[in-house]
């Protein structure tokens, strides 16, 4: 069983080096990490995969990122409903991130069906639950609960990540189970979501045509 922490930000973005974060990840019960802008490698028995985050909401940037990083896990920040549907139809996009920042109708049942069919996962960033307070945290929890309802109905995948920029931001599997329970996710669902990414990576290593 693979347990993956999706999108960590090691040094120089954060204050901890990749090796130190890998060491902490092993202690926390993870065997795979997706490190943003770091090449694939292995440290202390923890497999590191390359992650690319695309935050600019244009299809041109997304296509450019896919062409340049053929062996990376590509996550794209969500936008409006049209943009998200386009993303879901684009081969090479593995994850849609930052859905808590988008409008409620930006990811509806049509997008959910597409995500399930095209095997695109939805990224749930646990650091948002930890770092936000008050209204912002309530908004994140509500959005994640809505996504969970859609996931239970349409069966697309979730990918959970700590979003850590430091070893102090990394959380153990047990803590992640506790934090995801805050928006109603069961232990089994969380464990399934932690094992999603390697399946996406297997698809990545296959040759493909990018139009």
């Amino acid at each position: 069983m693979t347990v993956t922490d999706v999108f960590i930000h090691p040094f120089p973005e954060g204050d901890s080096t990749l090796q130190r974060m890998a060491l902490t990840a092993r202690e926390c019960g993870f065997d795979t990490l997706i490190a943003v802008h770091h090449h694939p490698c292995e440290y202390h028995g923890v497999r590191i995969l390359q992650g690319i985050l695309v935050n600019e909401g244009t299809m041109k940037t997304v296509m450019s990122a896919i062409r340049q990083n053929r062996r990376a896990i590509i996550g794209v920040a969500a936008g409006d409903a049209n943009f998200n549907r386009n993303l879901l139809k684009t081969q090479g996009v593995h994850l849609i991130t930052d859905l808590h920042r988008s409008q409620r109708n930006a990811f509806d049942q049509v997008s959910a069906k597409l995500a399930a069919g095209r095997r695109v996962a939805i990224h749930l960033d646990i650091s948002q639950i930890i770092s936000c307070r008050g209204h912002s945290r309530q908004k994140v929890l509500t959005r994640y609960a809505e996504l969970l309802t859609l996931q239970r109905k349409f069966g697309f995948s979730f990918a959970i990540g700590s979003g850590a920029r430091s070893i102090l931001g990394q959380r153990s599997v047990r803590e992640i189970i506790l934090l995801t329970a805050l928006f109603g996710m069961t232990k089994e669902e969380t464990i399934d979501a932690l094992g999603t990414v390697p399946e996406l990576y297997q698809d990545t290593s296959l040759p493909r045509v990018v139009v």
Binding site: S131, L168, R171, S172, E175, L178, L179, A181
Partner: peptide
């Protein structure tokens, strides 16, 4: 205990110093 452990996992800093508390 579950509520307490969840709350402990959600602690990020004390007096502006970033820390991590693990149950």
């Amino acid at each position: 205990e579950t509520e307490l452990c969840s709350a402990i996992a959600a602690i990020r800093s004390i007096n502006g110093t970033q820390i991590r508390i693990t149950a």
